[in-house]
Structure formats: C-alpha cells, structure tokens
Design a protein around this nucleic acid. Structure first.
Length: 286
DNA sequence: CATTTCACCTGGTGGC
DNA sequence: TGCCACCAGGTGAAAT
C-alpha cells in the first residue's frame, strides 16, 4: 500500500492526534511475522511510555518515545526509545476509539491514556514492527533510526546523479532500490519516469545529466503533490483517520494499461520489470 | 560486488 | 455458484 506520500500522510496524522499521549497497555496478535522485535519485548518496552512525536524516514514510521518515569510530558524531551512501523504492502496504522470493531488481521493495539487506541492492521503480514531502546549517552542525531537511502524530497542534483553513475540496471529498478533512494515504490517510480519522459528499461548509468535532473525534479514534484492529496488509494489505503487519498485520480500510467496516454493518446503499455508491473507510454517515454 | 529472482501472505477480480 | 489464474502499494534472502 504505502510509499513515501502515504507513509508521510499517516505519520503526520498519528503525530497530530497522539503527540504527548501515553501508552498504558499493549496487545499483539499471535502471528510471528510482523514482529521484528519479539512481542514480549515490545509490550514491555512500550507500556508506560509517552509518545513525544511521530515522523517518517523512507517508508518507515518512527514513534519517538519518552521514558516511563519521571513522566516527562514535553515534546522537546529527549526520546529514550523508538517504535518503528513498516507497513509492507497492506499495512494500516489507525487511531481509533476502543469501541470501534477490531478489523480482521489486526496485529497490534496500543491503549492510550486519552482513551483512544493505536491499531496496526495488515492482512498480508509483510509489515514489520520494531522496538528500539536508545543509548542516552549518544546524541539523538546519531542514535535515531534512519532509513538507509537518500530522501528524494531533499537530495541535491549532484548526489542524485551520483546514485546512478556506472550502474547497468534499469532506471526503474534503481528507483525502487531503498538503499539508494528511500521511499520510492512502484507507483511513484512509474509516474516520475512518465513525467520525465524516460523509459523504465533504460540503463541507469546511461541516462544523460539532463535526463537525470528531469527525473529528480519530476519525482520531487509528484511526491509533493501526492502528499498534498493525502496519497494514492488504489484499493484500500487509508490514513490514520481512515480517510482515503486522492492522488490515484492523477495517475498517468500506473494501472492504466491499455488506456490512452493523458498527453498523446497512445495506449499505455505494461511490462514486467524487476518482478513488478511497470507502466509507461511508448510514445512519450524514450 | 552488482543484479536478478523468488518466497513470503491474503484478497480481489475476471474468465470459463 | 465454483474454481482457477493472475494481480496487487515491499523487501530480504538466495541464486546468478
């Protein structure tokens, strides 16, 4: 479900609603797959902590947590632990009231002192939940979790070009590699390649400097626009409040196989690349 | 090392 | 209606 704009939308929603709320109880499902940190350690680590703030890095949602005691209830307090949520393909993170029906495939329920709940729901169980203690002797900048790749919203032209230099793999595969760029997935890879007029199969290292810069700017623009529209709801994505996004209405190629290109009318083509459905306009993209 | 393929899961859709 | 093939927002391990 979730790429950078969807994850950003969810993180902002959870931050707005749960900042300075306190976790009073934690329940987890019996399926082992979603738990990168064992359930018992997560339950023990989370219970009693204050949520100081929630943000996104790559496709990960990071909840900054304060110490259990003393009850430091200030958003500027130093975090002592983190709860890291990766949504995989079908994960949802929802702020609910306890009386709302529990959806099938709910794997985590955090009860909060405000009376609300934070729920993690994930039918396919590709998502992951992780709990980390932070070393208080280290500055927060070095101890905080960060996704490995560069952030596509802020990367410079030189750094972006350097990612692809000498690489023989397809540009689309490079865009999906999270150790290069953090947060780009199948939708925004296809859409940004369309807007920069580049064929997905082109070798990353053979793009001209001008093409690479077009791609960087198109990618940034598409991601920023998608964040403003609350992400893409292709089938079932919703934000932390259960609200669908609207960027799917702006898709030019993704899941538009056979439909006319919005720019030239040529039918959109679908190929398989890096194991993923890949959509492009054979006329607009060279 | 770089790159490609596949397994991990459930659910929805469309053809027969 | 049922059955089956195929498709779906991701990623990490294994193979090449």
């Amino acid at each position: 479900m979730p790429e950078l704009p969807e994850v950003e939308t969810i993180a902002r929603g959870v931050d707005e609603r749960l900042r300075l709320d306190r976790i009073v109880d934690a329940w987890f499902s019996s399926h082992p797959q979603p738990f990168k940190t064992p359930r018992a350690r997560q339950a023990k680590g989370l219970t009693g902590r204050v949520i100081l703030g929630v943000h996104r890095t790559g496709k990960h949602i990071v909840c900054e947590l304060g110490a259990v005691s003393p009850p430091n209830v200030s958003a500027t307090a130093q975090p002592s632990a983190q709860w890291i949520v990766h949504l995989g393909m079908t994960g949802r993170l929802l702020v609910t009231t306890p009386d709302q029906p529990v959806a099938p495939h709910t794997h985590a329920r955090l009860s909060l002192s405000s009376g609300r709940e934070l729920r993690f729901v994930d039918p396919r169980r590709f998502g992951r939940l992780e709990f980390r203690e932070l070393d208080f002797r280290e500055p927060i900048k070095t101890s905080a979790f960060r996704a490995p790749g560069s952030e596509p919203l802020t990367i410079t032209a030189d750094a972006f070009a350097a990612l692809f230099r000498g690489r023989k793999l397809a540009i689309k595969a490079a865009l999906l590699n999270q150790t290069l760029l953090a947060g780009v997935g199948n939708i925004y890879a296809d859409e940004s390649l369309f807007h920069s007029g580049i064929r997905p199969r082109r070798a990353a290292g053979r793009l001209t400097r001008a093409e690479i810069e077009r791609l960087r700017l198109a990618l940034r623009k598409v991601l920023e626009h998608a964040i403003i529209l609350g992400g893409s709801s292709v089938s079932d994505y919703v934000d932390a409040n259960g609200v669908r996004g609207f960027f799917q209405l702006e898709h030019c190629v993704y899941l538009r196989t056979g439909q006319p290109c919005r720019s030239c009318g040529t039918p959109i083509r679908r190929i398989l690349l890096a194991g993923r459905g890949t959509h492009f306009c054979p006329r607009c993209q060279r």
